[in-house]
């Protein structure tokens, strides 16, 4: 059986990830932010909630790269990596959805009616549709994996689905907001946060390190899972 890749035993990237997260918390809560109506201090959620989505997308990208590597080299380790990077990506996605619901409840939602009533309107936002679709697709990926008993076939088929889904999904997520906006100009009034125009450079020097920090934390968790799985395999077939 094969060893875990060497980068998983290195410490420097784990330490830098934690340092970046500590910096995110301190600078994220103290740093200067633009004063926007309605958003107010919640704009600081950018460093935590939005980072969940960025981390999810980066982890899914790593997962699909590992799937391609698996199909090229037929090495079990790439299959395990693909599975567990997708798993942590989904964890981030779920956390992103939950934190987004909390954030929306106090900013976008109509304060006069219960949040549960306005949720169906909010969930129609193109970005939320994209997020929900990608979560559903990766849940399907896990179901597909579990339904195939043979290990090699499972690895191959799920790698193929992973690549297929990713390549269809990501242009679609990029397209949807543009198409839906062009047909519903009235929705522009949403006080949604536009990362390109709205945030100041003072926020940017916290936001980008935050994305890297959260992603590195996710990679650390994923590598621990991969190493555990490799150990398990070694135990069953020494």
């Amino acid at each position: 059986m094969s060893q875990a890749p060497r980068y998983m035993h290195r410490h420097w990237w784990k330490i830098s990830g934690i340092i970046l997260l500590a910096y995110t918390i301190i600078a994220g809560l103290l740093g200067p932010v633009p004063k926007l109506p309605l958003l107010q201090e919640t704009i600081r959620n950018l460093y935590f909630h939005v980072c969940m989505w960025f981390g999810m997308m980066i982890l899914f990208t790593v997962s699909v790269v590992q799937a391609i590597l698996y199909l090229r080299k037929m090495d079990r380790r790439h299959d395990l990596a693909s599975r567990h990077f997708a798993g942590v990506g989904m964890l981030y996605g779920l956390l992103g959805y939950a934190t987004g619901a909390l954030w929306a409840a106090y900013t976008w939602a109509d304060p006069n009616i219960p949040f549960a009533e306005s949720f169906s309107t909010i969930a129609r936002d193109p970005k939320l549709i994209g997020a929900a679709i990608s979560l559903l697709v990766y849940f399907a990926y896990l179901v597909l994996r579990d339904s195939i008993p043979d290990i090699d076939r499972r690895a191959r088929i799920s790698a193929v689905y992973n690549i297929f889904a990713y390549v269809i999904l990501f242009p679609a997520i990029w397209i949807l907001p543009r198409v839906l906006e062009s047909l519903h100009p009235g929705q522009d009034g949403n006080p949604a946060l536009d990362v390109k125009n709205d945030i100041s450079s003072g926020m940017r020097i916290v936001f980008y390190p935050a994305v890297i920090g959260w992603t590195l934390l996710g990679v650390w968790i994923a590598t621990l899972r991969i190493r555990t799985e490799l150990l398990k395999e070694k135990q069953y077939n020494p």
Partner: peptide
């Protein structure tokens, strides 16, 4: 893909519905 998985009829809907949503929209 579904033909290679065990319970194929049900899994086709699970695999396909989220993926087809962009086209459907």
């Amino acid at each position: 893909i579904a033909a290679k998985a065990q319970q194929n009829a049900a899994i086709l809907a699970i695999l396909g519905f989220p993926l087809i949503l962009p086209q459907l929209i």
